[in-house]
């Protein structure tokens, strides 16, 4: 099943943002939930193995856009030999983009690929958070592969691929996290910081913070410490 979401944010009169394009087809619907906020709503179970979703975001100069989802995405395997499901977020940002989806839960036998490719103008702002839990409560973990590529003015700022779950490189004892959360920020610099199973690394005019562990809630708590923010409310 192919899903396509497109949102364009443009600077409107009086410093407000208008959203001239808000459309979706396939398994996601998109709702305007604030002046510069949209929520993605799943219209079916899944994603399912083999599903392919692309989210195209354009934030023009002077505009702001916040993208949220309404609930955790529970990734399920297709019947038989399940191919991975794929979600690509492609963002072109001249203004400010804030991307924070609810957690992705990858169930047993499923393999989810998440890609974020953000192309930023020189003074664009980006904050993107990824939250992953492998397996539902009491369930064997699934696999998750996440690639983040952020470019500023054509120069790569961050490009990493993290593989989690059985068979992935970073899934080897004694450090085989079932929960993972990461935030990349481009805009203002923060220095390097280390914590328990958590690390924040500086980027040029930005930073990337990552935390991992067994369960998502405490993992998010550790991530929040590195984001310099109050701990976020417990996710399901």
């Amino acid at each position: 099943m192919r899903t396509l979401v497109e949102v364009v944010a443009r600077a409107g009169p009086g410093g407000r943002t208008v959203l001239p394009v808000v459309r979706a087809s396939g398994q996601l619907a998109v709702r305007r939930t604030g002046p510069s906020t949209v929520h993605l709503v799943a219209t079916a179970f899944g994603p399912l193995g083999g599903d392919d979703a692309e989210v195209r975001l354009v934030v023009e100069a002077g505009a702001r856009l916040a993208v949220r989802t309404v609930a955790a995405a529970v990734v399920l395997p297709a019947r038989g030999e399940s191919p991975p499901s794929v979600q690509r977020v492609r963002a072109e940002v001249a203004g400010s983009l804030d991307l924070r989806a609810e957690p992705t839960v990858v169930t047993r036998g499923a393999h989810h690929h998440a890609l974020l490719h953000a192309q930023l103008d020189d003074d664009a702002e980006l904050t993107a958070t990824e939250q992953v839990q492998l397996g539902r409560v009491g369930e064997e973990p699934g696999r998750w592969t996440g690639t983040t590529r952020v470019e500023r003015a054509g120069t790569p700022l961050l490009h990493t691929t993290v593989g989690l779950g059985p068979g992935a490189p970073a899934w080897l004892p004694p450090v085989a996290p079932r929960a993972y959360a990461s935030t990349v920020h481009a805009g203002a610099a923060l220095a390097r910081a280390t914590g328990e199973d958590a690390v924040r690394l500086p980027l040029e005019r930005g930073w990337v913070a990552t935390a991992w562990g067994d369960r998502l809630a405490p993992t998010l708590g550790r991530l929040a410490l590195l984001e310099g923010a109050a701990p976020v409310e417990e996710a399901q």
Binding site: V86, T147, T161, V162, W212
Partner: peptide, 23 residues
């Protein structure tokens, strides 16, 4: 996951644990 060739899509395997240990 992408289909675009070129140096941008060279392998980028990362282990956050190794980053933490290094720091």
């Amino acid at each position: 996951t992408d289909g675009e060739p070129g140096p941008a899509w060279l392998p980028a395997g990362t282990d956050p644990l190794l980053d933490l240990l290094a720091e």
